[in-house]
Write a protein that binds this DNA or RNA. Sequence first.
DNA 1: GCATCGGGAGAACGTTCGTTCTCTCGACCG
DNA 2: CGGTCGAGAGAACGAACGTTCTCCCGATGC
Lengths: 194, 194
Amino acid sequence: MVLHARGDRTMDAETAELKLLDTAERLFDERGVQAVGMDAIRTASGVSLKRLYQVFPSKELLVEAVLRRRDEAVRAALTGHGERVADGPYERALAVFDWLAGWFAEPDFRGCAFINTFGELGGVTPSVAAVARDHKAALRAYFAEQTDALGAPPVLADQLALLANGAMAVAGITGSPEPAAQAKAAARVLLDAR
Amino acid sequence: MVLHARGDRTMDAETAELKLLDTAERLFDERGVQAVGMDAIRTASGVSLKRLYQVFPSKELLVEAVLRRRDEAVRAALTGHGERVADGPYERALAVFDWLAGWFAEPDFRGCAFINTFGELGGVTPSVAAVARDHKAALRAYFAEQTDALGAPPVLADQLALLANGAMAVAGITGSPEPAAQAKAAARVLLDAR
DNA sequence: GCATCGGGAGAACGTTCGTTCTCTCGACCG
DNA sequence: CGGTCGAGAGAACGAACGTTCTCCCGATGC
């Protein structure tokens, strides 16, 4: 509960945390983690350094929080998109690639944050590696839900996940949204093959 | 030409360049680019800082040289492996995934250097982004050679490249070599589907 | 009204980094 | 053999970073 309702000069901890996560996510996506200083996050977010370190006592914890929030957002978007636009496991599996297409077409798309951050910090920061592993396991699990419902062998879920991750990596590097459609067509072939 | 054949206390420029590229590649793979200082490369390679900056006038140029050399090595390994173990475009396309399997099984495998370095520096260093793009275009071109020979449509080459890149990303993050075999099986389905 | 608390702004601190400079010494040239 | 060149070792420099500290002010409680 907010006990002190002052003017606009200060902000409560929840607002600060939200602004920090939003700002850090955007800057990390644009420039990478190490290229963004805490001071840049302070300036871009308007949250004071003191508050910043109250909410996230170190940069590593901020990075972890950004990735965890994005992990949850992606999981929710995936299942939400699947339920909205497709019914049946076959369509839901394919709908993932439509969701990727929309993501890749965003003007500031620069690849998957988990692939990128793992590449930058995965060899040096175990917590980052763990979040990336968890996230990719969740994507595979979503495909596995659909393939299980189809009675398909588990390896099909792995293969659909490879297509999705390959599309993210290639779309990020080339800047083209095409990999989403290419991966969707390949996924359809794999789904139809059995 | 080496005019001064001294003892072992100095080394000529070619030897220094080789040692620097080898050392930098290993350290960059292990820890990422920004986590490795020029001093660490100096110490690990035994090449003096003075020589280092004679051969590579900046860290950015060293990173670029490491990636370009690896690009050429991968291209050569790909075609060499294809010619050695497989004949015919169908087998050559699949042989890429056997080559990936051997790579993923190396004890210090930490993912594709181009995917990882793009994630770290691609948003900030255009030359790094360009090398990564070129490298991924070359992989796609290798697949395109095989699919063209098979009379398959060009999109199949993109799809095989998505499988290969997805396997690299997932194998790097999870540390498992399995994605290579899963991708190979999927590639076979795609190749057989037409 | 006054003491206290907590926050914002930003200076300060210690470290690390990329890069350059200094010092020294061995090898070649006359 | 004396002078010059270039190399190695590592100190030094300036900037940037993550983190902490200082100063000041407005709001709250008695």
